[in-house]
Design a protein around this nucleic acid. Structure first.
Lengths: 151, 151
DNA sequence: CTACAAGCTCTAGCGACTAGAGGATCAAGC
DNA sequence: GCTTGATCCTCTAGTCGCTAGAGCTTGTAG
């Protein structure tokens, strides 16, 4: 019935130090201890940890999971808050996708324009160097030199 | 000709503490100092910092930027390495997009299936709770309770 | 009863910054 | 020349979600 943190780890697919970390940040309860101060868990903790793991896999932050867990303890309440949290997270994921997609576009343009010649004519380097707000030219850089290479 | 870190900050669009951090990790050179030990920069540093900022905006890691900067100092070399770095980064971005897209799908499914009733019947909570490896039932949870809610 | 695996606490590290304390310096105005 | 206030300096610590390791104790199987 009562089992160790290692067993819990295997049953829920979460590493032992991570479980202790979750306890520290208040996602998991402080469980009862054995005579020698070792943590003892039951099936409810497996379920809770699975919930946490799945929420993390979906990209929810620890703070959000704390709220989701608190809400799931109030099954008679309206789920409007749960819905709001999930929608907000969805919106964040969509923003990150949009941003990454535009990064991908620019990266693709860079690598397809690269003529595979020398660094001095490399499109990748040029794009990285040219995108700043250097609207006035800083003068005498020879072609093929970015002029800032000394660290 | 020689200007302060604050001016550099404004010209390159990078915050002052970030510039000092870049110096610490070797992306920016240790510049000459004034009599009172304040950093003095020139135009080359503006260009270098713009390069760094743009690479960061494209999601390159600091280690990769260090390599890109070193390569750009060798304009006669082949740009094969530059190309390799950019392509590897592109592949990482594509992986992240793929992962986020599948997250988005699951999140969308969750929120559209939510009936906006009580938490106990909320699809969002159910999906989070059910996805684990709890293939055998943990017994007597009343309908509407996840059975792990005590922290 | 002895190994030794697994547990414990505590501290520090990752990446890329950001924030703040507490003090020095610089440039401009009078 | 002097004062003011913005800017600069170094140093430490915090962010997030873990992960790694040291050094010690406990549990369990043979």
């Amino acid at each position: 019935m009562a089992f160790s943190i290692g067993i819990l780890s295997r049953r829920a697919g979460v590493k032992v130090p991570t479980i202790r970390y979750y306890e520290q940040v208040g996602l998991m309860p402080s469980p009862p201890r054995s005579d020698g101060q070792q943590r003892r868990y039951g099936d409810a903790e497996v379920a809770r940890l699975n919930f946490i793991r799945h929420a993390r896999e979906l990209g929810f932050e620890v703070d959000a999971i704390r709220e989701l867990l608190a809400m799931s303890a109030q099954p008679e309440e309206s789920c409007a808050e749960v819905d709001r949290l999930a929608r907000r997270h969805l919106a964040e994921v969509e923003q990150r996708i949009a941003r990454l997609v535009s990064l991908r576009t620019e990266l693709q343009r860079m690598v397809t324009e690269c003529g595979h010649g020398r660094v001095g004519e490399c499109r990748v380097i040029q794009v990285l160097a040219d995108h700043g707000e250097c609207d006035h030219d800083h003068g005498g850089a020879r072609p093929g030199s970015t002029g800032f290479a000394a660290a």
